[in-house]
Amino acid sequence: MERIFLFIYQYRAFFTFLVLELVAVWMFLENNQFQGARFFNSANSVAAAITGFSQNTADYFSLRQVNRALAEENARLRYELEKRNRQLENLSGATADSAIIKQFDFVTAKVVNNSVSRFTNFLTINKGSINGVEPGMAVISQAGVVGKVKVTSRNYSVVTSLLNVDVMISGVLKRTGHFGTVQWDGSDPDYIQLKYIPRHVKPLVGDTVITSGYSGVFPEGIFIGTIADVKLSKEAPFYLLTVKLAQDFRSLSWVTVIRNRLLPELDSLEVRVPDFQ
């Protein structure tokens, strides 16, 4: 027994190294697989306050641009609202289901931390569980899709960016109606890949790619981007399409979190069919 202690003491530096390294590896795996470790991320209030301060300073330089974008969005929304109102007037005879009219809730949030350069990018926003944000909710900006909420604390949330090699969402070619999978290849933050569009479709450069709404997380028809490059190798069953993202992720400052009130219903329905996915 004494010799074991002596042995451990002699190689104490090595054992310290071993233990701490294993702790680090464990934290890394745990954090990635189970979205655990709630405290040690940039949603914790001290870290968020520090990065929020530096982001605030940086924001002053993009105020003019943001103002313009918001004004444009306001104008567009007012137009949509009017259009919708008129449609409703025409339908006033029919009874609409209020659950479907109020299916989606919106929460506006400010980005306090953001990255675009890594393989797995995340952003932190200043709305948390207290504002009704929950893991799994969709996040969009006025230009298009941004990502999904990963973890929330009381006042902040971490969002898995679309620029993350682990994220896949369902996208549709608006012109033809064919759907595929949108996934980032980890190289250029301006472009993303659309996969599994079959050979017989004829996608063109400039075609619009939007969300399909199949997963129930994103509403149908949110803009993702436009096709910038079409590739089809000889034997491949599918196209490899490069999509120019509508949202410039480097200048992201305001986003909207979307909650789908009917998502639990959709999920519990699909669970009842074995092997649905």
Binding site: A24, F28, I50, V158
Partner: peptide
């Protein structure tokens, strides 16, 4: 550093090594 980079364990691993 990991806390701020949202990469828990990653920088820790490299630093300890």
């Amino acid at each position: 550093v990991d806390v701020f980079y949202d990469s828990l364990g990653l920088h820790t691993m490299a630093c300890v090594l």
